[in-house]
């Protein structure tokens, strides 16, 4: 590139523009860049590592299939996560399963953690389990994937006001849970 930046530094929009001009080899870079995030998102949604591998792969296959339908007006990352969200919903439909249950997320959070991290993760995992599926998805996308509320509305196909209310209610629930937790800890310390 003329400005001398490494390919890895190119923005998604620059890559998609090149891909749409026919330089499809840049798709590899785009897929590599987003694979971990999409995998983690699918893991949060399905609560199962094997299902997350399948859903992540399916998401990128959908990307290859429907890339022509992508328009620059949409943020690429939000569009990709929207595909992932739909793929996960399809997975639940096919498997006749419900989205990730109460304990699945908590177990995953604790999995592979070092001893010192377990307590912290347990707290976050249990706190997130206090939320409904929609509230959890909103909080996870906001804090763990760095999306803005407007983009979350796009990904989840919900109105902006609905996303705001899910976010606010989720934060309220987390606050109530943390207050209860800190109260209990103070009691135990005494």
């Amino acid at each position: 590139m003329k400005d001398g930046r490494a390919r890895e530094e190119w923005k998604d929009s620059e890559l998609t523009a090149r891909i749409q001009r026919g330089e499809t080899e840049y798709l590899d870079l785009l897929i590599e860049r987003h694979y971990d995030g999409i995998f983690r998102f699918c893991l949060c949604k399905t609560g199962d590592r094997e299902a997350a591998y399948d859903c992540a792969q399916e998401t990128f296959l959908h990307l290859l299939r429907y890339l022509e339908a992508y328009t620059e007006q949409k943020k690429f990352k939000a569009w990709l996560y929207r595909i992932a969200s739909n793929v996960c919903m399809d997975y639940f439909r096919k498997e006749a399963r419900a989205p990730a249950g109460e304990d699945a997320l908590e177990t995953l959070w604790k999995e592979d953690a070092g001893f010192e991290q377990i307590e912290h993760r347990e707290l976050v995992g249990t706190a997130l389990n206090q939320l409904s599926e929609n509230q959890r998805e909103t909080i996870v996308l906001y804090f763990f994937h760095g999306f803005k509320l407007r983009e979350i509305a796009e990904i989840t196909d919900a109105k902006m006001s609905t996303v705001k209310s899910r976010f606010r209610q989720g934060m309220e629930k987390l606050k109530a849970y943390m207050e209860k937790e800190s109260g209990e800890r103070r009691e135990q310390d005494r």
Binding site: D36, F39, C44, A113, Q117, H120, I139, F143, F144
Partner: peptide
């Protein structure tokens, strides 16, 4: 939550 994101390292990694 932000700290959890920072230290997520291995748990959600393929």
């Amino acid at each position: 939550l932000n700290q959890a994101e920072m230290e997520e390292g291995d748990w959600g990694r393929p």
